[in-house]
Amino acid sequence: MVKHAELDQIPLYAVGALSGEEKRKLEEHLTGGCELCEAELFEFQETVNRLPYGLAAPQLPAEMKERIRAKVEAVDAQKPSRIRWSTVLQLAAVIALFVIAGSLYWKQNGLLMEREKQLETLEAQRQAELRDLEAKLEQQKKEISWLRDPSVQLALLTGAQPNSKGKMVWNPTLSQGIFYASALPQPGEQKTYELWVIGNKGPVAAGVFAPDQQGSVVFTISRISEPAEGKLQFAVTIEPAGGVSKPTGSIIMAGTPL
């Protein structure tokens, strides 16, 4: 059962006699939406509203209406465009929606751009891998075709280092070759390995190379500076970085076609 001690306070509140904590509690109760007390308050307010009608009616100054009109016009002149808070709130809500939508768009756009960059990077990596695979495939195709060519020469290269081995597959018709090596140490600071094709006219530079981390080499000789004729030899020397036109360094390994 709802206890309504607040009902006793309603007439006091309506006439303005309630104060302090009692007033605050009653207002809290009314704000809570008590329909009974709201109805009571309405009735007592209407009762209180009758009191001024019981007063004697004094004469109003004739110019009072005009005075008030002038004041109202002065108020409006200070605020030429009256702000309707409902309109301001609606406008603020629309602006807030745009800001939220805009920030969501930019955030989404930022995420998309980032994703696009990531995809582009991945694509570039895939392309590089593909090119690498294609190069290897071409290499292997060449090797296979050369192996079928009876004119192609095979030479095994050996040197002072027993673990280091080399193999040259040489096509004398094209003056092209593929050099393989294993267990080659790094050449050292400011040094490089250089390959030579030695014919009747002496050594011809065939290119510089460096082994990988495991000491392995697969080096394609696509052209040499001048033809090498006669019975050929192949050699690897250590030279200054960038290579030289004629060998200066020590021979690391050498060999002749089988």
Partner: peptide
Amino acid sequence: AQIIFGLCLRILRDRAEAEDALQDIFVQIW
């Protein structure tokens, strides 16, 4: 206006004050 003026006069007990109050009240209503 008249009933409110009567209320103002009853509270303030001064005609000039009641007239000023009446103007303020209607400006506030506006």
